[in-house]
Write a protein that binds this DNA or RNA. Sequence first.
DNA 1: ATTAGCACTCAAGAGAAGTGAGTGCTAACA
DNA 2: TGTTAGCACTCACTTCTCTTGAGTGCTAAT
Lengths: 352, 352
Amino acid sequence: MTQLLDVRKMNILRAIVDDYILTAAPVGSRTLSKREDIELSPATIRNEMSDLTELGFLEQPHTSAGRIPSEKAYRLYVTNIMDRAKLTDDEAEYIRQHLQKRVSEVGDVIKETARMLSGITKYTSIVQKPHLKNARLKHISLIPVTQGSALAVLVTNSGATNSTMLSVPTGITAGHLEKLSSLMNARLAGYRLVDVQKTLLPLLREEVGEQADSIAGMLESLSEDIDRQDYEVVGAANMLDYPEYSDVSKARSFLSELERGEIFKEVLSDGSGVEMTVRIGKENDNPELQDCSVITISYRVGGEQVGSMAVIGPTRMDYEKVVAVLKCMSESLSSVLSGMLLNPSESGSDES
Amino acid sequence: MTQLLDVRKMNILRAIVDDYILTAAPVGSRTLSKREDIELSPATIRNEMSDLTELGFLEQPHTSAGRIPSEKAYRLYVTNIMDRAKLTDDEAEYIRQHLQKRVSEVGDVIKETARMLSGITKYTSIVQKPHLKNARLKHISLIPVTQGSALAVLVTNSGATNSTMLSVPTGITAGHLEKLSSLMNARLAGYRLVDVQKTLLPLLREEVGEQADSIAGMLESLSEDIDRQDYEVVGAANMLDYPEYSDVSKARSFLSELERGEIFKEVLSDGSGVEMTVRIGKENDNPELQDCSVITISYRVGGEQVGSMAVIGPTRMDYEKVVAVLKCMSESLSSVLSGMLLNPSESGSDES
DNA sequence: ATTAGCACTCAAGAGAAGTGAGTGCTAACA
DNA sequence: TGTTAGCACTCACTTCTCTTGAGTGCTAAT
C-alpha cells in the first residue's frame, strides 16, 4: 500500500521521528548530520528532507525552522516498530511481579494495572474493568435488604461477581424473592450473561405469572447492571509535562473531556477480536484527542476477550515503548486475572 | 478573640476581599472609592488600608500594586459570612431535585453529589462514600464462588450493602462456609460493624474450633473491607481556570497530589461531630494545599454521621457561595440517602 | 478627620535590535 | 549523476530599552 521510500529516506525519516519524539522541537539538517547513524552532509539531508516534505511525510512550521513528522510519517513509523517493540526480560518481569502482588480484588488489579501503565509510560492510561457479557452465569442470589429493596448478586463461572441493588415493588415478599431466585438459577445458570440479558430475562418475565409486571422493573435494572462498564483512569496530570499541553486552556479542555467520561466508549471501542489498535492524531474522532495518539489493546480471561486498556499520549509519543508495555501488560493482566478468577488457589494460565 | 476593627475598616476590608475574590488582582484605593458602598476618597481609603496592612489583614505584592487580603483577612471574612451564607429557595430546590433523580444506587448518588458540587461552585469537589462503621449488621452471606474463593455480602440495618471477595483456604468446603455464615449471623447480627470488626471477629476466631487458623485470613480481609473508604473526586480540571494555576507546573503538582489520593484522608478527617470546617491556606497541612482553601462538611444517614464532602478552591474562593452550597448539599444528600437506605419505597426523612 | 495634590515606584507592554538555527539554491567536485 | 560546500535569506526568540499607568506615601490645605 505504501510507496516504498528508499533506505536512505527511511533512515532519515526514522531519525527525524526519533528525535522529535524526544525533544518536541523541529529537527534540522545539521542536527541530523551529527548523528552517528547518518553519515551525510547537511546539504544532502536537506535535499532528502525536501523530498520527504513533498511526499507528505514531513511538515515545516515555518520557513526557517526544521521539519516535524506528519501523521503519515508516524503511521509508517508505527508500522515499522510494531514487531520490533519488546521489553527487556527485566522490565517484563518487573511488571508481572508488581501485578501479582495485588491479588485480592479484581478492582485492585485493574487499578494497579492503570497505575503501572501510566507510571512506566508517563502518559495517561485507561483500563476497563472486565465486563461480564460473555461469562456464563453460575449462580444468582437475591438477598432481601429492606422491605423495599434487595441485593442481586451474580456469580459467573469465571469467578467474577457483581452485585446490584434492586428496588422491590411492594407486594413482593421475601418468599417471592426466594422463589424467583431459585427459578432464575434453574433457568438461567450456564448461559452467557449477554444471552441472559437479551433473550432469557424477557422469557422469564412470562413465566413468573401474576407478579410479571411488578417484577419487570427488577429484571430491567438487573439487565442494566450487566451492561454497566467501568474504567480506571490514571496519569491524566502527566500530560501537563509535555510542551504540547503547556497551554493551560488546552490542558484544561483535555482534562475536562477525560473527566466527562465519554472518551472511554470511543477509546476502548471493542474492535472485537483485534489485538491492538493505534489511532494517530486526526484518526481519532474526538476533537479533544486530535493531537493525541491512542493505543489500545485488549485483555482476556481464559482465552475470552473481556476488556481493554489504552494509553493516551501526544502524537509524538514513544510508540515503541508504549506498544511494548501494552503487549506485556495485556499478557500479564490476562494471566493474573485468569489465575484469580478461574483457579484462585494457584496462579497459572489454566482453563477450567 | 479578635481585635474588633471599626465599622469603616470592616467595610473596606470586606470590599477588598469581595473584589479580590472576583478578580484575583490586587485592589487599589481608587477602585474601592468608585464602589457605591464606600463613600470615601482614595486618600482616606489609603490611610485605612495602610492601617489594615499594619494589622496584618492586607498584603502588598510590591510597592506600586494594590493590596490583597491576607489569610487572616479571609478568616475574619469567613467568620462573618458563615451564618449569612444561604442559597435562594430556587437554587436549593434545584439541588434537591437533581439529587433525587438518581435514586438507584448509593454510588450514583454520591457521584452526582460530587458532580453538582463542582458544577455549581466551579471548584474541585470530593465526596466520601458513606462508611459502614456505625451501621449495625443485619445479615451476612458467604457465597461460594470457586473452590478457592467466596463472596462475602454484608447487609446493614440501614440498608447499605457491601460485598468483598474472600480467598478461601483449601480444606474449607461450601458446607463449612454455610456453617460459618450462620454462626456469624447468630453471633454478630445487630452489632455495629466497628464492634464486629474490633472485638467480635477476633472472638469468633476462637469459636470456630479446628479451622480457626484457616479462617483467620478470611476474617482479616473481611475486617479490612469494613475499613475501606472510597471517594468521588470531580472538577479537578476546574482549577486550571484560575490564574492561581496558570503556571502549568503548579497545576501539575496539584493534580498529581489529588490523584495520589492521600489528600482525602487529610481533607475529610472526621473532626467527629463538627458540622463544617474551613481550612484556609497554610492551615492545611498538605503543602500542595497551602494556597487553597478547603471547606468540609459531613452528612448523615438517619441522624448518624456517615461521611463527609469537601470543596477545594483557591484561597480567594467564593466562601459565601461554597458554604451555602455545601450546607444545602449536605442536607439534601442526608435526606436522599436516609430515604433510600432506611425507607426505600418512599423518599422522606423518616427514621425506621 | 478628610481630602487634594504631587513626586515616586514598579510591573507590564511595545518596539527595536541582535542572535542563531534553519532553509533553498547554485556551483563545484568525485 | 549524486554529493557537498558556500552563501544569501528567513524568521522565531531573546534581550534591551522606553513608555505607560495604576498604585503608593507624604504633605499641606480644607
